[in-house]
Amino acid sequence: MSEHAMSDSPNKNASGLDRGEVTDVSDLHAAVLRERPDPIEGREPLNLWMVVFVAALLFWAGTYLTHYSGGFRADEFSERQINPLPPPSESGPSTEDPTTKSAKEGMAVFLAQCSPCHQADGNGVSGQFPPLAGSEWVLAEGPNRIIRIVLNGLSGPIQVKGSDYNGVMNGFRDSMDDKQIANVLTYIRNSWGNKAGLVTPAEVATLRAATKDRTEAWVPADLLKLPVSGGDASAAAPASGGLSPEALKEALKKLPPDELKALLQGLGN
């Protein structure tokens, strides 16, 4: 094929002319002249609705970025953390209620360490991870059992709010210090409608020392033998210590009347 392949090409049309060849130059321009007067084609200005649409999108983008960016912090992994907490060093001496302050600091720990299983709303996952909100374990009078759970973890069948769970939770003895554990427990005990008071780092430190030789996770059944508040591993556990109020009521109903009377007298003393 020669260099001018197309103009020499055998694509002849009916009139015998080469493809694209036109006999009259004014014919040639006719098409263009016909099209030219039409002012719309090729330069339709931007539609007003398009401008409105772009503006609306930009507005949405700003809103979304503000709400779901976790404060643009490199250590914030949950987009639902709307107002990230200032780093602890920045918070000066405050007159805040110690429980509120501790709970605030515990929130970050909770979102990082606990919320993947127990969820940010503390409701757990049905059938897999027990809830913390309204849990009788969390709301118990003292934190004796739950501190142990956080320190060493938990393994085996457990009943929470009337449902059965059977999973494994790892312990945080080596990865959290006393203050972190106290804060996160205070947060758990005072969030999502829970109201169960402050957990102090001292309480955690006492139990950490008391159970320092323990390496395996707690079994719920063993924990139930321990008192809900105070005491350490050596304290004797009353038989009914670990039952939920409902279960306790049931158990009490089954007792013969005279034994029940004796028990009540004992408690009164």
């Binding site: 970025l65 960016s69 976790g70 643009f72 912090r73 914030e76 987009e79 953390q81």
Partner: peptide, 10 residues
């Protein structure tokens, strides 16, 4: 980090 994903979504 949450913001990286959020920026991509936007």
């Amino acid at each position: 980090p949450a913001w990286m994903i959020t920026v991509s979504v936007v």
